[in-house]
């Protein structure tokens, strides 16, 4: 039966599969062009550089599944980085305590988004556009645009710069978050509710599901993970400035959409998002090895997004054409 989603042809035509091929092609191409591209060191480099955007893309996925968006995560990363530095240097907290407080701040900031969206019933685009400015503005006000936090202890820099069990030290955190979000979206009733809200928010309410609570959960989670990303970012660069994570929200959204999640909500997967992150990260790193100017990266990312989306739409059209041809012949019915 053609409608079987586990058929070989169906898997081949799935968006994630197409994207996997794109990533592999990118890899093969850059490996043939840049001699050092395929090395273990460079692979870990790609990982290190994509962890923060990857984290943001992971938590953006449930939000976009509900039909929402969070433009504030990049700015929140900046604010959290600054506050983390502030807690450690000026408030004299230990690194673990400062990290815990920073994560608390992230949760509060996510809570602010959630409150405005669910209580005042404002569109997420407008709310997070507001907090996008607010969080960045706060970060700049706190540092007066000049203060930079540096000289973190080596034990903290280990997290962002060293290896642990042979892999970049921040990778285990990313893997844990990825598994957590994957389970949340694909294996729990929360994920089911996110999708339902994305398809029909009113219909979900009529089914007795608390739409507000589910939405709040998605935005608070985004705030928490943005704070985690801020700590990793600070550790990787060894410094925290007010412009940390500038523009990251757009990279994250691009990765999610590239990964096949519908911007209208309801449809999408976490593994798609991971592939989206990989496609962008490999492209950006590979272009350096191919000795291309940096501007090309943005252009190609855009092109990649458009190509990936068109190809998956075309394959979907083909699939539905096939399905129609099939069902017109035999119509299996269960009664």
């Amino acid at each position: 039966m053609n409608t079987d989603k586990h058929g070989f042809k169906a898997i081949l035509l799935r968006h994630e599969t197409i994207l996997l091929f794109v990533v592999l092609l990118e890899w093969l191409y850059f490996n043939s062009v840049g001699p050092r591209f395929g090395s273990v060191d460079n692979t870990f480099d790609i990982m290190r550089h994509s962890v923060e955007i990857g984290l943001l893309a992971l938590v953006m996925t449930p939000i976009i599944l509900t039909g929402g968006i969070d433009l504030s995560v990049g700015s929140l990363l900046g604010l959290c980085a600054i506050l983390f530095g502030k807690f450690w240097r000026d408030a004299g907290m230990s690194i673990p305590l400062a990290a815990a407080c920073t994560i608390g701040i992230g949760a509060l900031a996510g809570g602010l988004n959630a409150t405005l969206i669910t209580w005042l019933r404002l569109p997420p685009l407008i709310v997070t556009l507001g907090t996008f400015s607010l969080f960045r503005g706060l970060a700049e006000a706190i540092t007066r645009g000049a203060d930079t936090f540096t000289n973190f202890p080596a034990s903290f820099l280990f997290l962002g710069q060293e290896r642990w069990l042979g892999i970049p030290a921040q990778a285990p955190i990313f893997i844990l978050v990825a598994i957590g979000i994957w389970l949340l979206v694909h294996r729990t009733t929360f994920g089911r509710s996110f999708r339902a809200i994305g398809f029909a928010p009113e219909g979900t309410r009529y089914a007795g599901i608390s739409v507000e609570r589910r939405l709040a959960m998605a935005y608070v989670l985004a705030g928490i993970i943005a704070a985690v990303a801020a700590i990793i970012y600070t550790s990787r660069l060894g410094q925290a400035k007010a412009d940390a994570g500038m523009g990251y929200e757009l990279f994250a959204i691009t990765a999610v959409v590239l990964g096949g999640t519908s911007i209208f909500g309801g449809v999408g997967t976490v593994h798609g998002t991971l592939l989206g992150v990989a496609a962008i990260a490999v492209l950006n790193n590979g272009l350096v090895h191919a000795r291309q100017p940096r501007e090309v990266a943005g252009m190609l990312t855009g092109l990649l997004l458009i190509l990936a989306l068109t190809s998956s739409i075309i394959s979907k059209m083909l699939a539905s054409l096939n399905a129609r041809r099939q069902t017109s012949v035999t119509k299996p019915i269960i009664t």
Binding site: T189, A196, F199, A200, T204, Y206, G208
Partner: peptide, 29 residues
Amino acid sequence: RRHGVILEMPIAHNMTMAIHDRVFPGTWL
């Protein structure tokens, strides 16, 4: 079509929407 059934979702998912707690104890599907 707007409130009764979520058209994009499989009928199985539609049928369990109001009883998540009961069919999926501990929130695991």
